[in-house]
Design a binder for these strands. Structure first.
Ligand SMILES: [Mn+2]
Ligand SMILES: [Mn+2]
Length: 940
DNA sequence: GCCCGCA
DNA sequence: TGCGGGCAACGCGAT
DNA sequence: ATCGCG
């Protein structure tokens, strides 16, 4: 039986998509040949470019009446040295090979499909042999397509892809058709469809695939062509049509040349002679949910990037150009390429305002890519879009209308190197149209600015931002009980079906309802109440209130900010119940990717990457006099603590709340524990960025991980803006007040980075986190720690041991702040791998439970930049509230478990200690040497 | 635990 | 006023 | 290509 097409047919709804329905592979209309090869006909070959969730190329070869298919994420390469991953996917009907068009949202594989190449293929050894080769996992063949020719190999790798997908590799054979990837990228050189007129290649027109896919519908692209047609400068065009007639506009009427002359001494109306300030605060946009009426606004695309201010001053001693973040951090060093371009603007002095972005392969600004570019120190990948010029050549232009400032800026940028510096255009469309286009293109939103406004530092209403919200239907699978005075229910539990028919949990929505809606929705919920949990897997969240299930038949339309990578919606807001669509058809809709923003718009701005907390370094240094200074060990529980209490000068709310049911420990006990160990603990926290595990209710309830300062919520912690680009400041806990303050805020665990804030790129320690298979006895852990120590010692490194407070031990290696993150990480990986290689019965260097059966996982991954490990003396949010405790090596053998000490009993140990078991830690001066690396290398 | 957005 | 949601992100390894 | 884990 040939059932290979069943899956394909099941995944699609044929009444709803323009794709061909598969006829049975072998059952054909009368008169048609049984199979092509039987008749000696050539076998067809096709590559379809499929712009689905992920852009990929479907590589298909006809054999035995169907199309064998692989998804090749990166497409084919003519370079024999380049292997391209090809994920084996289900067979497709032969007819599908000529399909080109849109697969509507909601259908499997939604997105656009074009036939990128087609022709015939010829298996080496003939068709009969091909079936065997295919089964054996190695196909050699020749292609006769319009784009691809010559010999190719598809080989099944030993690797396995996700699901039950086989991983194959697509490789060009060495022959006359082969080309070096670096000198000929066929995907770039021959984009587009080989069918019909959309083959831009035919005309030799250079078009990116993303642009060709989306250009047709975006207002932005129209904007560009309009601007292009209208003249050299769209900014100029804009101002000439929009200038306020009451104010004679000396800028609007000028051409570029004339504007540049004007720029040399911009003493125009509104400009004031002024010295160039040394610091400058940017103007920020206010979030609004609807565009204001009227045409006084011009719009720009909101970039998902990082706000930068450039200061140019040729009179300055030192370098003329400096680049600052919004918070005023000097990031000049990260923008070496851009600095050169700034120098070439021919400006004497200025403040320039813009946004740094990295465009992803689709031409969409991508914040993650930007971070990567910073991390990898690749300034050449970064493009700075400039949109304003508040100071120029001795004049303060903040009083000059926006349009005129921008016209001058644009003129100045006429000849700039646009690979690193660009002018960000504006669009004179209706905000609605532009926003829709922007959202279509998976951009974040748009920025509106009053045409006639001056430049106002800080948050203001003359700049606004309109954000894209996603919107789609969800299946309601349950609801949580209301709390307080809320009626009916708290939130709806949402789900979407996947292609296999599983209803996957997709988060919850608890807002957007008014009282009437709550009531009417509840009525529906009650009508469909069930004991049966409808999701494929129980949602793994911990709900604040109990949940109830309903049959998965109700459909809720919601809007939301975005999907998380876990398939959960963020910031969902209820819109309405829908009964026009069967629940079974509700699937995750993915926004269309693509749209080369750079080509289509040249546009830009935004106020800042992500929300960033307001600046504040709180007065943690104001030492509270007397009683609360040094930790006076207050070990025992306070017998009766009348709420609210005060500890170390910090008010403690709900002191008597039980936070650990298993031990009965109360919030005040944890707070007092931290107060009592502050003296011991603070040296481990000081100046070290910290992530917090917080449990505001109790450790059995909702836990969350906090890496950045949340607005100003935790009192007394120190904030470090700029260390983690694009995020609110990182936090350090440097004082007892901060420590207790954090505990007051529900912090249970403190996890520290392997570097200090003052030298964030140079880790000062490496950590080996020994994680045991649950089945192993503690002796094995002791032995493992000692073996780890021996190896390190052998290499010449002194190490220190502490309990984890949970199940294992940590071995910590102090290092001089010398090597970078990568080097330390690579070294620690080498150590872990060496251990796994020499004692494979004892150690594994691979994470994952199945790699650790009867073994101990040497977790070196804690040594990544931004990773953290639970700090010494931190409690753990687990039953019993274990504590991570530093040990002398000669004590290790006598330990009984990773959670041997708890917030309850640690004081006993501390009271008995004669000296700090880690007394030598601070004195240890050592670094990773080439010799050490070599020994590890040679050994393995 | 607290800030924010929404009713 | 009171409620609910957010409060990390990234590498690794499996399938 | 995507999921789950830590
Ligand atoms: Mn596909
Ligand atoms: Mn561990």
């Amino acid at each position: 039986m040939n059932d290979r097409l069943d899956l394909y047919n099941r995944k699609r709804r044929f009444d709803d998509t323009p794709e061909p329905a598969g006829t049975r592979a072998r059952r054909k209309p009368a008169g048609r040949k049984t199979t092509r090869q039987a008749a000696g006909e050539a076998l067809s070959y096709v590559i379809q470019e499929h712009d689905a969730r992920r852009l990929h190329y479907d590589f298909r070869l006809e054999l035995n009446g169907t199309l064998l298919s692989w998804a090749v994420p990166k497409g084919p390469s003519l370079d024999p040295s380049v292997k391209r991953l090809a994920v084996h996917v289900e067979d497709h009907p032969v007819e599908y090979g000529s399909f080109e068009g849109e697969i509507p949202p909601g259908n499997y594989g939604a997105g656009s499909v074009i036939v990128w190449d087609r022709g015939t293929w010829e298996p080496v050894g003939g068709a009969a042999e091909a079936a065997r080769s295919y089964a054996a996992g190695k196909l050699k063949f020749h292609l006769h397509g319009e784009k691809l020719h010559g010999g190719w190999t598809l080989v099944r790798s030993h690797m396995r892809g996700s699901g039950d997908k086989e991983q194959w590799l697509l490789i060009k054979e060495r022959d006359d058709e082969a080309r070096d990837e670096s000198d000929y990228d066929i995907l770039k050189k021959r984009p587009g469809s080989v069918l019909s007129g959309s083959a831009s290649v035919a005309k030799g027109e250079k078009t990116t695939t993303a642009a060709s896919k989306t250009a047709r519908k975006t207002a932005a692209s129209d904007a560009k062509s309009t601007a292009k047609r209208g003249g050299k400068s769209s900014a100029k065009a804009a101002s000439s049509t929009r200038a306020d007639p009451r104010r004679p506009d000396i800028v609007a009427t000028r051409n570029t040349q004339s504007l540049r002359e004007l720029a040399a001494t911009p003493s125009i109306e509104g400009a004031v002679k002024a010295r160039l300030p040394t610091t400058f605060k940017p103007q920020l946009a206010t979030l609004v949910d609807a565009a204001p009426p009227g045409d006084e606004w011009s719009y720009e695309i909101k970039f998902d990037g990082y706000r930068v201010l450039a200061r140019i001053d040729r009179d300055a001693k030192g370098s003329a150009v400096k680049v600052f973040t919004r918070a005023g951090n000097d990031w000049t060093a990260k923008f070496s390429k851009q600095v050169k371009a700034f120098e070439q603007l021919g400006i004497e002095s200025a403040w320039l305002d813009g946004e740094a972005v990295v465009l992803d392969p689709n031409g969409v600004p991508n914040f993650q890519a930007l971070q990567n570019a910073f991390d990898a120190n690749r300034p050449q990948d970064i493009i700075v879009y400039l949109f304003d010029i508040p100071f120029l050549n001795g004049y303060d232009l903040r009083g000059v209308p926006l349009e005129q400032r921008r016209a001058i800026l644009h003129a100045l940028m006429e000849d700039v190197d646009d690979s690193v510096l660009r002018f960000s255009n504006n669009f004179d469309f209706s905000a609605e149209d532009l926003l829709r286009s922007a959202c279509d293109m998976a951009l974040e939103g748009i920025i509106g600015k009053r045409r006639d406004s001056g430049y106002l530092s800080g948050r203001s209403s003359t700049w606004i931002k309109l954000k894209c919200r996603r919107r789609q239907e969800f299946v309601i699978g349950g609801y949580s009980e209301p709390s307080g005075s809320r009626a009916a229910f708290g939130a709806l539990l949402l789900g979407v079906y996947d292609s296999k028919g599983n209803l996957n949990y997709a988060g919850r929505v608890g807002t957007g309802f008014d009282a009437a809606l709550l009531r009417s929705v509840k009525k529906e919920l009650d009508a469909h109440a069930t004991k049966r949990m409808p999701f494929a897997a129980v949602p793994r969240e911990r709900s604040r209130t109990p949940v109830h299930w309903v049959e998965p038949v109700l459909v809720a339309e919601c809007n939301f900010a975005e999907w998380t990578s876990d398939g959960i919606v963020r910031q969902a807001s209820f819109v309405s119940l829908r009964n026009d669509k069967p629940a079974r058809q509700i699937v995750k809709e993915t926004p269309r990717q693509g749209a080369d923003v750079q080509q289509q718009t040249d546009s830009i701005s935004d106020d800042a990457p992500k929300k960033r907390a307001a600046r504040k370094t709180s007065g943690s240094n104001v030492a509270a006099a007397g009683k609360t200074t040094a930790a006076k060990p207050k070990t025992a529980k306070s017998p009766t603590t009348a709420p609210p209490a005060e500890v170390a000068g910090v008010r403690i709310s709900h002191p008597d709340r039980v936070i650990d049911k298993s031990s009965g420990a109360r919030k005040i006990d944890l707070v007092q524990y931290y107060e009592s160990v502050a003296e011991w603990m603070l040296p481990h926290l000081k100046d070290r960025p910290v992530s917090l595990v917080r449990a505001p209710e109790d450790i059995g309830g909702e836990l969350f991980f906090q890496k950045h300062s949340q607005k100003l919520s935790i009192p007394n912690v120190t904030q470090h803006p700029g260390l983690d680009p694009g995020h609110p400041p990182l936090i350090t806990v440097d004082t007892i007040k901060a420590l207790v303050g954090a505990a007051q805020m529900g912090t249970v665990e403190f996890h520290t980075w392997n570097a200090v804030a003052s030298n964030i790129e140079k880790p000062d320690r490496a950590v080996f986190d020994l994680d045991p298979d649950a089945a192993l006895g503690w002796e094995r852990m002791i032995e493992a720690a000692q073996l780890t120590r021996s190896l390190l010692e052998e290499l010449g490194l002194t190490s220190f041991c502490k309990t984890s407070g949970g199940k294992g031990l940590h071995v910590v290696v102090p290092l001089a702040k010398q090597a970078g993150w990568d080097e330390v990480k690579d070294f620690s990986q080498a150590v872990a791998q060496h251990m796994a290689a020499t004692l494979p019965k004892y150690f594994s260097a691979k994470m994952g439970a199945q790699n650790r059966k009867q073994k101990i996982f040497v977790d070196y991954l804690r040594n990544n930049r931004g990773s953290s490990t639970v700090a010494a003396f931190s409690a753990r949010a687990r039953p019993g509230l274990g504590v991570s405790v530093p040990l002398a090596w000669d004590e290790v053998a006598g330990t009984t478990g990773g959670d041997q000490w708890t917030i309850e009993n640690l004081h006993e140990r501390l009271a008995e200690l004669k000296s700090d078991p880690w007394a030598d830690y601070a004195k240890t001066r050592q670094r990773i040497t080439a010799a050490m690396k070599k020994r590890l290398n040679d050994a393995q």
